[in-house]
Simulated scan of single mutants.
Amino acid sequence: MIEVYTDATPNGLKVSIALEELGLLYKVRRVFLGGEQMTPEFTALNPNQKIPVLVDDDVVVTESGAILFYLAEKTGKLLPKNPKARIKAIEMLFNQMSSLGPMIGQLVVFRGPWQNKAPEVTNRYFKEVSRIYGVLNKRLEGQPYFAGDEFSIADIAFLPWIRFAANVPFTADLPLAENPNLKAWLERVLARPAVQKGVAIPEPFPPEKQFEGFIKATVGVGDLHK
C-alpha cells in the first residue's frame, strides 16, 4: 500500500487530493514539522527533510510536483492524452512549483513570523503574487482548467496554495476577486467531491501546534536550522 508522509500544508494536501481523485488506497503518516522531519528515519527517506514523501513499495518519491507526476504516470490519469494538452499540464505544474508556491510562502513568512519588519520586501512578494494571479486568470480565459477542458495535476498543484492564500489573514488582501476566471476556477475545483475529501487529509494539528511547527521549521526564524 502507498504510504504518504505529510502534513496539512499546501504541498502536503496536493498528494492527498491526487490520491482521492485517483481512488488509490494509501496510509497517512502525519509528520509534525516542529522536528519529526529531522529524525534519522525521515531523513533516510528525504535528505532534504521536507514533506511530502510518497513510498510505493520500493519507490520513494519526494517533492510534491514529482509525486503528482509519478501518480499520474502510474495510473494513466490526471494527465491529458492529447499531446498539446499534456505538455500544457506539465508546463503549468512546473509553473506552480517555481512561482506561486514559493512566492506565497515568502509573503506569509515576511508578513507573519517576521511581522512585516521589512515592508519593502513584503511588498515585493505581494506584488509578485498579485501579478501571478493575473497571469493565471489569463490562462483560464475560455477554459475551465489550466490544461484546457480536463482537470489535471496542474489544477491539483495550484489548488491548495490559492485556497490557503484565500483563508490565511496574512494574504486575505490578494486580488482573487479581481481575477474572476481564477476565482471561478477555485470554486469549481473545490466543489469536486474528491477534492473536498483530500483537503481534509491529514487532519491538521490543533492551531497552536500547527503554528508552532511552522515557526520552528521556518529557516531564519525557528530553531531547527541553526
Rank of each mutant, 00 (worst) to 15 (best):
I156K: 10
E141A: 11
R111I: 05
S98C: 12
G148L: 12
Q143G: 09
T122H: 07
P169Q: 00
L176Q: 01
E120T: 11
N181D: 10
T122P: 10
L176Y: 04
V189F: 03
F126W: 14
Y133K: 06
V109H: 06
G101A: 12
A118P: 05
G101S: 08
Q196W: 09
L140H: 04
F164E: 03
N123Q: 11
P193Y: 13
A191N: 06
L136E: 11
A184T: 07
Q115D: 15
T171K: 04
M97C: 15
K117P: 02
R188G: 14
M97A: 12
S152I: 01
A194I: 01
K117G: 10
K117A: 15
L186D: 14
A191M: 08
R131P: 11
Q196I: 11
P160M: 02
S99M: 10
G134N: 11
A157N: 05
W114F: 10
I162Q: 09
P169W: 00
P175E: 08
G134Y: 14
L182K: 02
Q196K: 12
L159S: 03
E141Y: 00
R111T: 05
I156P: 15
Q115K: 15
S99I: 08
Q106M: 08
I132A: 07
P102G: 09
P180E: 07
V121I: 06
K183C: 02
F126D: 14
G105N: 13
S98A: 10
P113E: 07
T171H: 01
M97N: 13
E120P: 02
W161I: 02
V129I: 06
L140P: 11
N179T: 15
Q143M: 03
P113F: 13
D149Q: 14
A172R: 01
A157H: 07
P119K: 06
W185C: 14
W185I: 13
V121M: 07
L136C: 05
G105M: 15
M103L: 11
V189H: 01
E178I: 07
I153F: 12
A184F: 12
L159D: 09
G148F: 13
I153E: 14
R192C: 14
V135C: 09
A177F: 08
Q143P: 01
P193N: 12
W161G: 04
F151P: 07
G142R: 04
Q196E: 11
A191H: 02
V135H: 08
K138V: 05
S98D: 07
R131V: 08
T171I: 00
V135N: 02
L159F: 11
I132E: 09
P169Y: 00
R192W: 13
R163E: 06
A194C: 09
L182V: 07
K183Q: 12
R131A: 06
V135R: 10
V129K: 12
S130R: 04
R192S: 14
I104P: 13
S152A: 06
Y145P: 03
P160G: 04
F110A: 08
E128L: 03
R124T: 02
Q96C: 12
T171D: 08
